Simulated scan of single mutants.
Amino acid sequence: MALILVTGASSGIGRATANALADDGHDVVVHVRDRTRLSASGDTGRWTGAVIGDLADVDEIRAVARQAGEFGRFGTIIHNAGVLRSPDVVTVNTVAPYLLTALLPKPARLVYLSSSMHRTGSTDLRRLADGTASYDDSKLWVTTLALALASRWEGTTSHAVDPGWVPTRMGGPGATDDLAAGHRTQVWLATLRDVVPATGGYWYHQQTGTAHPAARDAVFQARLVDALEEHTGVPLG
């Protein structure tokens, strides 16, 4: 059984992912934005522990990393937390996954939540710092980070997952995709040994898909990592 961290697990896909993994016997640590969201859940008895912090705030991201580090080295980290319409879209969707990745001990497996909308994201990394980045941009960048790590860290696999447009609080009641299918790929990647490709996959409902070409471009990957290192002051290693 593995020790697994799931961010953004107070509701929706994150909570379904955490519960499925816990039900399979894994030791699951959940991240939630604030403690009231944790206490409002009836699932706390299923989890090994919780870390608390607002991923829209860089200081709190660092605090989440410190709290998570107290549990030891994770077998899998699932970067699920995200926002759709917020001035904090880049911080939550891109900077937080980057910082948590850089600050925590390297796990055996990394899974990052992407979106089909990443395909219309921009490669203009000036948007990272100037406040003009969109949701699409943030998802292109976190997808690129996931695929960059696939070849950067020996012994760590890394994948990006499009969960589909599902009827969660973020997706809205009009979403047309299968809610149950929204978390299955993450659970599968977190636990299954024989995944093809073993690392660097862009997944949709347990099938490989086509990512934005920039996400697989080694030059853009390097530019993104450099930009994130400069933006945060934290090297990826």
Rank of each mutant, 00 (worst) to 15 (best):
A198G: 15
T232R: 03
H183R: 02
D217V: 14
R184W: 01
L145G: 12
T91G: 03
A129V: 09
D226A: 15
R62W: 00
L145I: 15
A148W: 11
L140C: 08
Q186P: 01
T36S: 15
A129R: 13
K106L: 13
D226S: 14
A63G: 09
L38D: 00
S116N: 12
L84S: 13
L103G: 01
A81H: 06
T191I: 02
L149M: 15
G174R: 14
H231R: 13
R223Q: 15
L128H: 02
A20H: 00
Y202A: 10
D88S: 11
L38M: 05
A211Q: 13
V111L: 08
Q221H: 13
H205G: 02
L84T: 12
T120L: 08
L179Y: 11
T36F: 02
S86G: 09
G69M: 03
S10T: 08
R15H: 11
T48R: 11
S86I: 03
I13N: 04
H79S: 10
G174A: 14
P163D: 07
A9V: 04
D24G: 08
E230G: 07
G172E: 13
D124N: 13
A56D: 01
W153I: 14
T168G: 11
G182I: 04
S114E: 10
D226F: 07
W203E: 09
A102L: 06
G131S: 03
S114F: 10
A211F: 11
G121H: 12
V166C: 10
D23M: 01
V89I: 13
F71V: 00
R62K: 11
A16K: 04
A108V: 12
R62L: 02
P167C: 10
A2V: 05
G237M: 07
V142F: 12
L103P: 00
L38R: 04
A63V: 04
D217P: 14
R109Y: 04
W141N: 08
Q206I: 04
V30W: 01
P97I: 10
V196H: 15
L100T: 06
G209L: 13
A50E: 08
V142N: 12
A56N: 00
V30T: 04
P87H: 04
Q206S: 06
D43F: 01
L104C: 06
T44W: 05
H26L: 11
L140F: 07
E154A: 13
A198E: 15
H212Q: 13
K106Y: 06
D27I: 00
G82N: 09
A96L: 02
A108T: 14
L104S: 05
G75R: 08
Q206A: 07
Y112L: 12
L38N: 00
D59A: 13
V225M: 10
R184Y: 04
R35A: 09
V225H: 09
G209M: 14
T120D: 14
F71S: 00
W141P: 06
G69P: 03
L104V: 07
Q221C: 14
P235Q: 07
V90L: 08
P173H: 12
E60N: 06
G164Q: 09
S116P: 00
R85A: 15
D59I: 01
P107S: 09
